[in-house]
Design a protein around this nucleic acid. Structure first.
Lengths: 261, 261
DNA sequence: GAGTGGTCTAGACCACTAA
DNA sequence: TAGTGGTCTAGACCACTCC
């Protein structure tokens, strides 16, 4: 598969072994492996390259962060599929036009007083009731993101009274909130993207271990110049490429093309 | 600062030590530390929590990825400043209206035949000349991103001939390309965001070590329905929060508010 | 039970910074 | 020169998957 790693350059600011290893592995997997193939196991790779297993793992960590590898406990290390382009933006998100899109799955909905920080973010008095809908975004049948959508009670006055949490009614409740929001006629959004790690709750929803890197998308929705909802979506950073704006202007661009050029 | 870590829950799927440690550290630094303060050194922290240094470092790695900590060799581990919101979008990027904005600094400009992958991304025949402008984005005096802007020669026919790389002329060359692009009247953009790591070249420009996590923003610019430029920008994931859309709809939203709520 | 990746340890040496 | 984070090692045990 590959030759042993020669010692790092050695003289001036020696390149770390793990970084050199990563470079060698990139070349190898780009050249000799294809999606879904499994690499030799870590102990063998480490031996082959003449490094400790921890050092090899440091290199694999990098490649996993780049979305090139997937590691599965008890199985092995596989070549990852290219990242999936996920449209982000009102018309693409299946919301407010909820009914049309099949790509979201509601998980639950709770109505509770807003903690201080959330209240501040929503521009409402602390303690006002906020409806929080949690849902999952599916793309090609895969869970790609978990979202918490916070809607102040004052923004959806026509929402039916809480049905006292009858089992299984949470999904209806979620739908109800979304419907009311849709009715409002959202006419503006402001959005931010940053890197984060999945906490326990999100991680469970995403079916990933805690600490999984995610792209955190925070969206403010406005209606009639007023903030009516705040969505915090955590997208799996390993498998997602977020896309914005005029959809499909020309074609999808493989990032690596331009970065290595 | 904090008490020793009790053993992980122990019975069902024990929580990893490093993850529990991270939780404890988050509480501690949110409660007892403020921006710029230095934490006790790693050996002492490890001893205090009764773990190996490597385990402690695993926890610190997470916090650094989240942008909560900054580690400086020879100095120590500091509490990071909150991430800076960086507007992404044509009007905010100082381009094409280059002259007005001071937030970009041109680095160099090379004109060369397009490698296969880049040519494909630009929708031009392989080998056609492409002008590549490299520049840095500065926010509050800090280097936040490195960008490679690729413009096919055919898109800017009025570009003056190459001045044979007279020393120091590269900056003029870059300006010239940007000016021609501005002249074209860009009227559409398509954009994607994904997680990556800084390669050697980018890392040097960003003044960070290789492997630094970055948000890779790929932008396609169109004029008259035709793709005229491709920009690949790598933003420092530790210090940047990318913002999109109708700028400043209501106010900036601290993400943590809503995520932990 | 055999094989995989995930976690953790105790130690070593290096590169960088500051006094 | 002393102290910091960065790298690397050799080993151990665990949780998970599959046969």
């Amino acid at each position: 598969m590959a030759v042993p790693v020669p010692a790092a350059s050695g003289s001036t600011v020696p390149e770390p072994k793990y970084w050199h290893l990563r470079t060698v592995l990139v070349r190898t997997i780009d050249g000799e492996f294809s999606t879904g193939q499994v690499l030799p196991n870590e102990r063998e790779l480490a031996a082959r390259f003449g490094v400790a297993r921890a050092t090899l793992r440091q290199a694999l960590d990098q490649l996993e962060l780049e979305g090139r590898l997937v590691r599965r406990r008890g199985i092995g290390t596989l070549i990852a599929a290219p990242r999936v382009g996920v449209p982000v933006g009102r018309s693409d998100e299946g919301w407010p036009s909820t009914s049309r899109s099949q790509s979201w799955r509601s998980v639950d909905c709770v109505s509770a007083p807003a903690p201080a920080q959330l209240a501040r973010s929503l521009g409402i008095p602390a303690g006002e009731t906020v409806h929080t809908v949690r849902r999952l975004r599916l793309v090609q049948g895969q869970i790609m993101a978990a979202e918490s959508l916070h809607v102040p009670d004052s923004a959806v006055p026509r929402l039916p009274a809480v049905p006292q949490l009858i089992g299984g009614a949470e999904n209806d409740r979620a739908r109800s909130v979304l419907r009311q929001l849709e009715r409002l006629g959202v006419d503006g959004e402001s959005r931010s993207v940053e890197l984060g790690v999945a906490e326990a709750g999100e991680a469970a929803l995403l079916e990933r271990p805690p600490g999984t890197p995610v792209l955190v998308v925070t969206t403010q929705y406005a209606a009639a110049g007023r903030l009516v909802a705040l969505a915090v979506s955590t997208y799996r950073a390993d498998t997602c490429k977020l896309t914005f704006g005029e959809t499909g202007l020309v074609e999808v661009t493989p990032v690596e093309a331009a970065r290595t050029a």
